[in-house]
Amino acid sequence: MFHGYLPMILDGLRVTLSVAVVSLAVASVFGMMGAVAKLSASPVLRAVAGTYTTVIRALPDLLLMLVIFYGGQILLNTITQAQGWGYVDVNAFMAGTITLGFVFGAYLTETFRGAILAIPRGQIEAAQSIGLSRGQVLRNVTIPQMVRHALPGFTNNWLVLLKATALVSIIGLDDMMHRASLASAATREPFTFYMIVGAIYLAITTVSILGLGALNWRMSRSLRREAVG
């Protein structure tokens, strides 16, 4: 069955999952920096972060991937050559994850910003008034609540990012989609192999929704208790 190409596709799934997980981590870093910049007092930082989120969200993912992949490499080579550092090799995995991370960082910026803003100002003031330090307020009041407020948006962004990983084959990553195209060309059964890839994506989506849904339920436990009691 599947002419022996199924293991190859499943091997591509490991690449797809790695890309998705690493991209999410990179996106969280960009998103956190973006959110902090947007809420900062500095007009320069706010303008930079504002441009970042506006431009990224106004362009197709595929276009951004191609621009950052090709443009980023050329830029990097220009810099390293000018500095006399020789060539720095950017492999497709790094390029793909940094690109996806940069793109989805713009969406997470909004999620994180909204989550920080959703924390009632009074709570932070109350924590400060009982003598908690800045670090303590951040650790015990701001971050736990921010995570809870950000989780629904974070979940949605993860699901969208997961689907966007299908695009990395276009910039040369050897992921599930690329494996399916090779298998299709060799066997002339594109329907079979793209259906398999689609089914795998649907399975990951389902697992993610169930898992993150359960997490969301757990994290809002304290709220429910308040509502009941």
Binding site: A166, L167, M177, Y194, M195, Y201, L202, T205
Partner: peptide, 16 residues
């Protein structure tokens, strides 16, 4: 909504 649009496009274009 649970599968990438690129996969849907390829199923229709290359697959059917």
């Amino acid at each position: 909504r649970g599968t990438p649009l690129l996969v849907q496009l390829f199923i229709i274009y290359y697959g059917l």
